[in-house]
Amino acid sequence: MAIANALAFLLYLCSSVILIRRFVQKDPTSVNASIPVGILIIMALLFHATDIFFTMKNAGGWELGLFTTFSLTTWLMALIALLVGMRLPNAHPGIIVYPLVAMSLMLKVELPSPEPPSLAEPALEWHVLLSLAAYSFFMLAAIQAIILAIQEKQLHQRHINGLLRKLPPLQTMERALFQLLTSGFILLTLGLITGLMFVDDLFAQHLVHKTVLSIIAWCVFASLLWGRVRYGWRGQTAVKWTLAGFVVLLLAYMGSKFVLEYLMS
């Protein structure tokens, strides 16, 4: 398990270096990094999945510690980033995502949960997977929103530096943002439905904050998507709503787990 974790960590970092080097080059066409990065990331995903598998096996089932959950979330992010990068090689999200994934692997080893919770009801597996997948999409959407905000600000100031010129047009970046938001919203909706089906006592199961904050986040993203369709919301409005919804969701998932596992244990 430790070997798989270390190999995945190194592969993610190597991929990040290749992508950053390719992005900052004056002539990116001189080096075709798509194939080696693709191979490296596929290998990293396999080793990362192996680490997750043995973690679950050693725990005798689903181990839902904070950084184990974060590791699983970032695995999904790395997979999504690989697929998005194939379509948008000039704005490969792996430049930001892969270092984040590597960090999650390091945190998982260095800061293990004191008493990691396990899955009480096997049927909740679908709820966990849907929720983590939704969180992955929204985290990518938050990263996309920050890049979009910087790109739009420099465009309005008519001062776009050389690196930002390499990004796709603003409309393409904005379209990608709402694709991520739509996918995440659908998964979050399904995650909330499957989760509420198995809730017996919100207080006894320590689910009050998580449930309330998740519903608030759902309302924020629903309002944003509705505003996009009804009023054509875009630009800074979309960025602010995206980041607000993500912060609420971050508090719901990671914030509540951190409090329960590290502050109240």
Score class of each variant (00 low, 15 high):
Gly162Glu: 03
Met103Tyr: 08
Ile147Asp: 05
Thr68His: 12
Ala149Met: 14
Asp27Pro: 05
Met139Thr: 05
Val31Glu: 15
Gly60Asn: 08
Trp218Pro: 01
Ile150Thr: 04
Ile96Leu: 14
Lys57Cys: 12
Phe67Lys: 06
His92Trp: 01
Asp51Phe: 11
Phe70Gln: 00
Thr194Met: 07
Val239Glu: 00
Glu121Thr: 14
Ser16Met: 03
Leu119Glu: 05
Lys210Gln: 11
Ala2Thr: 12
Leu140Ile: 06
Gly232Tyr: 13
Phe203Met: 13
Thr69Lys: 01
Lys240Asn: 11
Val229Gly: 05
Phe138Lys: 01
Phe138Ile: 06
Thr237Lys: 02
Leu188Trp: 06
Val247Asn: 03
Ala141Asp: 11
Leu250Gly: 13
Arg228Lys: 15
Leu7Gln: 06
Ile146Met: 15
Thr74Asn: 10
Gln25Pro: 03
Leu148Asp: 01
Asn90Met: 15
Ala120Ser: 15
Met1Ser: 11
Leu19Asn: 09
Pro168Glu: 07
Ala2His: 14
Leu225Asp: 07
Pro112Gly: 04
Gln205Met: 12
Leu83Ser: 04
Ile147Tyr: 05
Trp126Asp: 10
Lys153Gln: 06
Arg165Met: 13
Leu76Trp: 01
Val248Ser: 00
Ala252Ser: 11
Phe53Trp: 09
Lys153Ile: 15
Leu72His: 02
Leu100Cys: 14
Glu63Ile: 09
Leu188Arg: 03
Thr237Asp: 07
Phe137Gly: 05
Ala222Ser: 15
Phe67Pro: 01
Ala133Tyr: 00
Tyr135Trp: 09
Met56Gln: 06
Leu46Trp: 10
Phe70Lys: 03
Met106Gln: 09
Ala8His: 02
Met103Asp: 00
Ser104Phe: 02
Ser113Gln: 09
Ile52Met: 10
Met86Arg: 14
Trp62Arg: 01
Asn90His: 05
Leu188Thr: 02
Gly227Gln: 10
Met43Tyr: 07
Met1Leu: 08
Ile41Glu: 03
Pro169Arg: 06
Ala145Phe: 10
Ala217Leu: 08
Phe70Asp: 00
Ile186Val: 15
Ala145Gly: 04
Met1Gly: 07
Lys240Phe: 13
Val220Trp: 06
Ile146His: 03
Ile193Met: 12
Ile42Lys: 03
Ser214Gly: 12
Ser113Met: 04
Met56Arg: 02
Lys26Arg: 14
Ile160Trp: 04
Trp241Ala: 04
Met254Tyr: 13
Ser136Ala: 15
Gly94Pro: 14
Thr29Arg: 14
Trp62Gly: 02
Ser15Glu: 02
Pro168Gln: 12
Gly162Tyr: 10
Gln236Ser: 15
Ala123Asn: 09
Trp62Ala: 11
Ile215Ser: 03
Ala102His: 05
Tyr262Arg: 12
Glu125Tyr: 02
His48Cys: 08
Leu100Phe: 09
Phe23Gln: 12
Ala176Ser: 15
Phe54Asp: 05
Pro112Ile: 03
Ala145Lys: 00
Leu83Met: 10
Gly162Asp: 00
Ala120Leu: 13
Gln157Thr: 08
Leu187Phe: 06
His159Pro: 06
Ile193Asn: 05
Gly65Tyr: 04
Val199Asp: 00
Lys240Leu: 13
Ser30Glu: 14
Ala49Trp: 01
Ile39Ser: 08
Val101Pro: 00
Glu125Arg: 13
Lys166His: 07
Phe185Val: 11
Leu105Arg: 02
Pro117Asn: 07
Asp200Cys: 00
Ala244Gly: 07
Gln144Lys: 01
Trp62His: 05
Asp201Lys: 05
Gln179Asp: 11
Ser265Phe: 03
